[in-house]
Amino acid sequence: MSHSLKNLKLKIWRQKGPEDKGRFETYDIPEISDEASFLEMLDILNERLITDNTEPVSFDHDCREGICGTCSLMINGQAHGPQRASATCQLHMRTFKSGDEIVIEPWRASAFPIIKDLMVDRSAFDRIIESGGFITAATGGAPDANLIPIPKPVADAAMDSAACIGCGACVAACPNGAANLFTAAKLTHLNLLPQGQAERFKRSEAMVETMDSYFGSCTNHGECEAACPKEISVDVIAMMNSDYRKAKITNRKTLSRT
C-alpha cells in the first residue's frame, strides 16, 4: 500500500549554461507518495516551478527503466543515489524518509562539461567507441551465425560486460574522473569473443589511448564498481591493462614485420 513522505528538502544544483558559475537552490517538497520514482518527484517539482513561472530543473532522462543510460544524477554524493545496482530512474521515494534533505548534483568530471543544471555532455564516451569499440564486419559478408560456436561461459562473460549502459556513473564516482571501467567493459566484451580476436590488440591500444586523452587516470579506488548500475566488476580493468600491455608489444612486432 502506498504511503507518503513529508517535508523533504531538496538542494539542487542550478546552472544556466556552460559558462555560468552555478549554485545550489533549495526547494521544499511538502508531501510525496513513496510509490513515486525519484524522477517523478522532480517532474512534480518542475510542474510546480512552471506554475510559479520559474524555469524548471533541466535533467537528462529517457527510458526510465535503467537501460538507456541517459539519467545521471549525483544524489547525496552518490552516483545514481543510495540504491545498489540501479540507475537514478529506478530509484523510488520509498528509499527515503520524511524530513530527509537530499542534495542533487550533476556528474562532475572534467571530461563531462555541464550543459545546464543537472545535464552534462558525455560525448567523450562516443569518441572512445569510435576509436576502436567495434568489430569490423561490413554488412552483407557475415558467415552463418552458428558457424563459430561460442562456449556458453564465454558468451555469458561477454554479456556481463556488454551490459554497460554508458551512463558515466563510473566516471562521476571516480576521484580522478577516470573512464577505465567504461572502456574496459567494452574491451572485455569484444576481446573475449572469437569474432573480436582479429582486432583485439589494435582495439585495446586505440581505445585506451583515446580514453587517456579525455579522462583522468585510474589509481584503483574501485569506486566505479560500487557505483555501476549494472555491477560491472573492476576485473575488466585488469583484462584491459593486460591486453594493452600485450598490444604495445604485439603491435610493435607486427610493425617490425612490415
Partner: peptide
Amino acid sequence: DQMVAQGVPFAREY
C-alpha cells in the same frame, strides 16, 4: 548472421 559478426552476445547453449 550480421549481428553475431558484430559481436552481439546472444544467448548460447552449452
